[in-house]
Design a protein around this nucleic acid. Structure first.
Lengths: 339, 339
DNA sequence: CCCGTATGCTTAACCGGGCAAGTAATCCGT
DNA sequence: ACGGATTACTTGCCCGGTTAAGCATACGGG
């Protein structure tokens, strides 16, 4: 069966397609009676205006893009992105915007995708994830004048709008909590050092450890995978003066770390306390359940989507601060056993 | 800066836009010299043809859709979908197709989305996930004549093309392996009973248990979440004649089950063997690492994408059988300790 | 009664490409 | 030298909407 066009509706209603257009878009120019008749016919034959034709005549594409720059294995294992996407999606579909997704290999490929999407008028705006300290995507997007919202920050976003969460505060809260429990040797297994949020957390860690006089604190970097998290943990726990608490930059590494600790015969939390960043349901599946820093990721995505639609509409926007992650203490943290 | 159109390229090249169109699409009608000049100018001013305009003049939208019908929490925790998406995406972007994603609440919403996408000419085809035994989406898509590929089966796909994996064989292999280890009381924690693949696995489980004379086998149903997996496990392990081995329909439930077993003081694998379906990296993070049924999910997605592009191209297609999941024995399975 | 204006619709141009048909110039064989 | 074929373009219409401008008809006020 042929998909109906505006002309089909017009013919059956005995009016011009201009009248149908006015009726469908709630614009003045047709009488209420005619409008109802047209809408009824449109519904009857299952007509919705072609998005392509709409996009062509000056209107917007009613679609936004999201490019993800992580290998499949990591994307799958990290609940963060899927939760973010579903939050973004909820907000977008409520305003009948579509989400176009692309997985890219690196920053250059990502910039090329943005350039193509914009030139092809496929999207009205894009999200930028995994902000780096000196991110080439920011100037590229500014040059293209492609509406964009950076998911991350604060700062380093140029003139682009952004949504961010105060990771420094969350980290400080965590360290203070561990210190209050009595820990003095606290280690951190960080994520990819090139990412801005890793740097922010690292700086915050250095700052708060300095402030609290913890001179044995140490950070090792990893890549969010379980393998690397396990390796980093083995290294930390094999050192002569091993830490009594470890903060992991994601939950996958924390679970791997827990596993390593148990395999090395250490009691968690007796010999080692563990805190995970990102409180996905995974944290409650393991034994003991992990103390974690969590926040509402779907809501974060929804805020980013709302922000992007605002940018697209030309409304003034800036940096929007989202909820700060809060610590949920569970069984993986306790005062250190005296040795 | 205004985004360049074909007319801008034509003007700067001193030719008509028809000539530019021929040059850009590799069609005969322009000399090689002119083609090169036009391509150079197009590249210089950053021109790519508007997808909307292309879609309008009879061509395809160069986009396909994927609607996911699961709540955010489950989508995030299940590595399956993200891996599937990245595989789909890899194949699509290689052929410069875009992927449009939408999260929906239920089957009716999903059908409405398909209907709208198709009427709006937003997509050239769609993927159908989580096939049910009597799926209303199949007749709806057939009626719309919207190109579609069902990810799942075999059977129950009407006239739609599909990609499937032999879950019955994988399940049989697993049960036979456990029986070879000496297990006689094997339980299964299944996924949502409304899903076709759950039914297929259940039937296969009943069949193979009957064939091998395991009359104490039992299946309980769950919903893929850790909470439900834990609850199901507690129920199983509290029964007077508790099983010595449990097969879980996904890895999240298996991990939750492992945790419950340990919490109840049972040794894994000594007192209880555990097998997980879906071998994500999570399985290797826990202690002991989980024996799991795995296969290459990104490749599965890529095959589905290739199949969909074939349907869109009007080529004959049918049911494509993908790799069967294979068992990777790890530390969570062993002969049952004699009681 | 006539003119100004509001209402309700139609007409036609336009968005940015694709493509069939038309045309001018060149080539080729005889 | 001439007719036919080929090459290398141009012209113009089409896709399916939006929207400014045009045009009847009705209404209301002086």
């Amino acid at each position: 069966m042929k998909r109906p066009t505006i002309a089909d509706v017009a013919r059956r209603a005995g009016v011009s397609k201009g009248a149908v257009s006015y009726a469908m878009n709630g614009q003045p120019g047709v009488s209420e009676a005619t409008r109802q008749r047209i809408l009824a016919i449109a519904a009857e034959i299952g007509f919705s205006p072609s998005s392509a034709a709409r996009a062509l005549s000056g209107a917007t594409a009613k679609a936004v893009g999201l490019a993800l720059c992580r290998p499949a294995r990591i994307l799958g294992i990290e609940p963060f992105f899927m939760e973010l996407i579903s939050g973004v999606e909820a907000e977008l579909s409520a305003r009948s915007y579509a989400l176009t997704l692309q997985v890219v290999a690196d920053q250059d490929a990502e910039i090329a995708v943005y350039r193509r999407w914009w030139a092809e008028r496929r999207v009205d705006g894009v999200f930028v994830c995994d902000l780096r300290t000196d991110d080439r995507r920011v100037p590229a997007l500014e040059e293209l004048q492609l509406p964009a919202v950076v998911i991350g920050g604060p700062g380093h976003t140029g003139s682009l709008a952004s949504v961010w969460s105060d990771e420094a505060a969350a980290l400080a809260e965590t360290v203070e909590y561990l210190v209050a429990l009595g820990h003095r040797r606290i280690a951190r297994v960080g994520g990819l050092p090139a990412l801005l949020h890793t740097e922010i957390r690292s700086d915050a860690f250095t700052e708060v450890c300095g402030r609290l006089g913890l001179d044995e604190s140490v950070t090792v970097w990893s890549d969010y995978t379980g393998e690397e998290g396990a390796r980093a943990t083995r290294r930390l726990l094999s050192s002569p003066n091993r830490p009594t608490a470890v903060i992991y930059d994601n939950d996958v590494m924390a679970i791997a770390g827990l596993s390593v600790a148990q395999e090395m015969g250490l009691q968690v939390p007796g010999d080692l306390s563990i805190v995970a960043w990102d409180d996905s349901p995974l944290c409650q599946l393991v034994h003991p359940p992990l103390t974690a820093l969590g926040r509402d990721i779907p809501a974060y995505g929804a805020h980013a989507a709302r922000q992007l639609l605002r940018v697209i509409a030309g409304e003034p926007t800036g940096e929007l601060q989202d909820e700060t992650a809060h610590l949920t203490p569970r069984g993986s943290t306790a005062p250190p056993r005296v040795r």
